[in-house]
């Protein structure tokens, strides 16, 4: 009896996260997916068909027949969407790379710091999260604008005489993304480096590696899982980022998050914006799933 009960409990423990995924990920996804197959209309909600359970199963089936791929076709017809996707991916990729360049040394420094100092350093990385993301991005406007803190400083230091135009350019977007997502890069790399056995580095040196060679042959490859996790954690939200390009970017900056927002709010075209969101999801999910498959295969090969 007790055995049965414990089997039930252990099953329940597994069910909870699955139920969570079902309710908060899969169901919303299907709602968005369904809307992406609908047609826009002037109504509330602004799309057809709308299911009416009163019609019974036959009624639902009939509504399903009204689904169309028109919105997806539309996305291919207007080059704006393609450009927005490409530019989003490029901006996200460049920012991810920059975040890695800055984040890796920070994580490395933290992992090599005396054990007693590490909690404080960790706290300093997490600290910015305690203020609102939006406010921090607004703060960058104050720093980057032509008469902002940065230009004032550079002019008073005599380094430049004309203020630099940074705000409302892609540079400002890069700064914003790198700044906002840096902790997501630092933390996984730090955790990978921190649990690394120091004797591995000594072994590499013992076998003839200079400290730099030991880094590239041992430390870096071993931190790769952290690097990959950090890059995904930065790249994925950066592709769909809306707030940073909206506040810091210029009018010519094309990012899919902004496009989606415009479709949804300005045009009130829910079906097209849903299609935009679904395509964005596929762009992100397919390469990641493929990559993980390759990784899993490589891992199991040695067995």
């Amino acid at each position: 009896m007790a055995k049965l009960a414990s089997a039930f409990v252990s099953r329940l423990v597994i069910i909870i996260p699955y139920a969570w995924l079902l309710f908060f990920f899969l169901i919303p996804f299907f709602i968005v997916f369904r809307i992406s197959l609908s047609q826009t209309t002037v109504a509330m909600p602004p799309y057809t068909p709308v299911f009416d359970l009163a019609g019974g199963f036959a009624g639902i089936l009939e509504k399903v027949r009204e689904f169309s791929m028109d919105n997806y076709v539309w996305l291919t017809e207007d080059v704006l969407y393609f450009n927005a996707y490409v530019s989003s991916v490029v901006i996200a990729a460049v920012s991810t790379f920059l975040t890695l360049l800055i984040g890796y040394p920070i994580a490395y420094g933290m992992a090599k710091a005396p054990r007693s100092l590490r909690p404080m350093l960790l706290m300093m990385v997490i600290l910015p999260f305690w203020t609102s993301f939006l406010i921090r991005v607004y703060a960058w406007i104050a720093i980057l604008k032509p008469e902002g803190l940065l230009n004032q400083f550079l002019i008073s230091a005599g380094i430049i005489d004309q203020p630099l135009i940074i705000l409302n350019t892609n540079t400002a977007i890069y700064i914003g993304i790198v700044y906002s997502y840096l902790p997501f890069m630092v933390l996984p790399i730090y955790s990978a480096l921190e649990k690394m056995d120091h004797s591995l580095i000594e072994a590499a040196q013992d076998l003839g590696c200079t400290p730099i060679a030991a880094f590239w042959r041992v430390t870096f490859p071993l931190s790769l899982p952290g690097v990959v996790a950090g890059c995904l954690l930065v790249f994925i939200p950066a592709v769909g980022e809306f707030v940073i390009p909206d506040l810091l970017g210029g009018s010519e900056t094309l990012m899919i998050g902004k496009t989606l927002w415009n479709e949804f709010n300005s045009n009130r075209d829910w079906p097209v914006s849903s299609a935009v969101a679904i395509i964005l999801l596929l762009i992100l999910v397919i390469p990641i799933v493929y990559f993980q498959n390759v990784q899993a295969k490589a891992d199991s090969e040695g067995r």
Partner: peptide, 22 residues
């Protein structure tokens, strides 16, 4: 003379095998 230029090699207590290599 740094460890990487010494004509000695060490076998570590933890073995310190590189986990990412065959």
């Amino acid at each position: 003379i740094p460890p990487y230029r010494r004509p000695v090699n060490m076998m570590f207590q933890s073995y310190a095998l590189f986990p990412h290599m065959t």
